[in-house]
């Protein structure tokens, strides 16, 4: 299942902005943190409302640790699959990253080396996960503040090999592409030319801020104009079926979220979702 019907501009559903999300007249695509949804208890009311309106809601896992050298925890895979069924999600997503090792939680998404050994580990874990899923999985490359010393592959070769071997889709976070390129001193748009853009299931668009001489992908700041410009560059090459605003804290007034959603619509050429009949 490579082809998805276009959903247009979406948003990451969070309890703090549930009222704002519920009031978006043109919304057809949302994402929810998979670990925040109970596999069997009641769904959060806001999500039920979105499902009743026919909005696609994609569970986004953050704690599977697909990039861990250790096999994924079967209970976490079962939970992700159960949440996808409850939401009747068209797909699920997770990260090319690890979040724990040797029984210790990192509390964050950590980069893995761009090595053959790490590719093998990710591919094995994605296969284990796909065995339980009824729907495709999209993998998201993360923003990394540092790289491993023993990288054998460049970013594009590393991602393409993982996607090919695991038969996964790509969740391309445009803000992560921007952050990595800025922190590594590389050209962000050049990566687009070497990725299999037809495999992009959807995109994240988020904000960040620079301090300590490094750009941090915070999801708690405004989306920079540079990231919106990259959205336009990506869509000029191959427009993904959905692009969503990802905000995880320090929620601004509704007018600012509205302006960011409209800016993503303008950059991608999709209709605005913030006005009725748009």
């Amino acid at each position: 299942m490579r082809r998805m019907i276009p959903y247009g501009v979406g948003i990451g559903w969070r309890p703090e902005i549930a009222g704002f999300v519920a009031a978006l007249p043109g919304l057809r695509f949302a994402e929810v943190v998979a670990e925040s949804v109970h596999a069997h208890g009641d769904l959060p009311a806001g999500l039920t409302g979105l499902r009743e309106r026919g909005v696609a809601v994609v569970p986004h896992g953050v704690k599977l640790s697909l990039g861990g050298a250790e096999p994924v925890d079967p209970a976490r895979v079962t939970h992700l699959a159960a949440v996808a069924r409850r939401l009747e999600a068209p797909l699920v997503s997770e990260h090319i990253a690890y979040v724990r090792a040797g029984g210790v939680e990192a509390g964050h998404l950590l980069p893995i080396p761009r090595s053959r050994e790490a590719v093998d580990a990710v591919v094995a874990n994605v296969r284990r996960t796909r065995e339980e899923l009824d729907v495709p999985i999209a993998l998201e490359p993360i923003a990394a503040l540092f790289d491993w010393p023993d990288d054998e592959l460049d970013e594009a070769a590393f991602l393409t090999e993982i996607l090919d071997r695991s038969e996964a889709l790509l969740l391309l976070d445009v803000a992560n592409v921007y952050a990595n390129a800025r922190n590594r001193g590389t050209d962000p748009a050049a990566l687009f030319d070497r990725l299999p853009l037809e495999r992009v299931a959807y995109c994240h668009v988020a904000g960040g801020s620079a301090h300590d001489g490094v750009y941090h992908d915070t999801h708690t700041d405004a989306v920079p104009q540079e990231v919106l410009n990259l959205v336009a560059e990506l869509c000029a090459r191959h427009r993904p079926p959905a692009l969503m605003l990802e905000r995880d804290g320090s929620y601004p007034p509704a007018a600012e979220l509205t302006a960011e959603l409209d800016a993503i619509a303008a950059a991608s050429g999709y209709p605005a979702i913030t006005r009725a009949g748009a």
Binding site: G102, V104, L110, W148, P149
Partner: peptide, 27 residues
């Protein structure tokens, strides 16, 4: 524990427990 598993654990320890940064990383 594979080489990668041990090295991933060493990096987590540096980030969460004050363990030394593993060799080769930009400290």
């Amino acid at each position: 524990m594979s080489g990668l598993a041990a090295r991933q654990a060493a990096l987590v320890a540096a980030l969460t427990s004050g363990a030394p940064v593993p060799p080769g990383f930009d400290a």
